[in-house]
C-alpha cells in the first residue's frame, strides 16, 4: 500500500511501488487531467507539482513521492487559477492536450518569480512540448497573469 496526497486529499492505493506517479494518478485514482505524452520525461504533458516543484510524473515511481503533496491540473492555487483565467481569455489551447502540463509548469514559475522575463519563461517552459504550437500565446498568457495578479 502506498499513500499519496493529491490536491489535498489522501489516497491509499494498492499498486507496485515502481509504478510511475502518472499512471497511479490516471489509472488507479482516476484523475485524467494529467496526460501521457512520451513516458520518458521528454515532453512535459504529465507535469504535476510535488511539494510545489514541477516534476514529470511519468518517470517518478510512487514510492518516491509518498507523503509529499501533489498538485495536479484538477487542483487549485492562486497562481494556477489566475493562469487558467488568462489561458481562457487569450484562447491559448488548440487541441488542449498538453495544456495541463503547460499550466503546471507556468504555475511553478510564478510561484517562485513574480515578474518573469521572456528568458525566464523560456527556461521554465522549455520542457513542455506543444505540437499545435501555442507557445506565443502561452508566453503572452503568463505575462497576462502577472498583470491580473497586480490588479487583484
Amino acid at each position: 500500500m502506498v499513500t499519496l496526497y493529491i490536491n489535498g486529499k489522501k489516497h491509499t492505493i494498492d499498486a507496485d511501488p515502481e509504478m510511475p506517479l502518472l499512471w497511479a494518478i490516471r489509472d488507479i485514482i482516476g484523475l485524467t487531467g494529467t496526460k501521457y505524452g512520451c513516458g520518458k520525461g521528454l515532453c512535459g504533458s504529465c507535469k504535476v507539482l510535488l511539494d510545489g516543484s514541477p516534476v514529470q510524473s511519468c518517470i517518478l515511481p510512487i514510492s518516491s513521492v509518498e507523503g509529499k503533496q501533489i498538485t495536479t491540473i484538477e487542483g487549485s492555487s492562486k497562481n494556477l487559477d489566475l493562469l487558467k483565467e488568462a489561458w481562457v481569455e487569450l484562447n491559448v489551447p488548440q487541441c488542449g492536450f498538453c495544456q495541463p502540463g503547460q499550466l503546471i509548469a507556468a504555475a511553478a514559475l510564478l510561484d517562485t518569480n513574480d515578474t518573469p522575463t521572456d528568458e525566464d519563461i523560456n527556461e521554465a517552459m522549455v520542457g513542455n512540448i506543444c505540437r499545435c504550437g501555442t507557445y506565443q500565446r502561452i508566453k503572452n498568457a503568463i505575462h497576462k497573469t502577472v498583470e491580473l495578479k497586480k490588479q487583484r
Binding site: T32, T34, I73, E74, W87, V88, P93, G96, Q99, P100
Partner: peptide
C-alpha cells in the same frame, strides 16, 4: 474563444485516452 477552453485548462476535456 473556443467553446472548450475551460475544459481544456481545467483538465476536464475528455480525450480518447481519458
Amino acid at each position: 474563444r473556443s467553446v472548450d477552453a475551460e475544459d481544456y485548462v481545467n483538465g476536464t476535456a475528455i480525450f480518447g485516452l481519458d
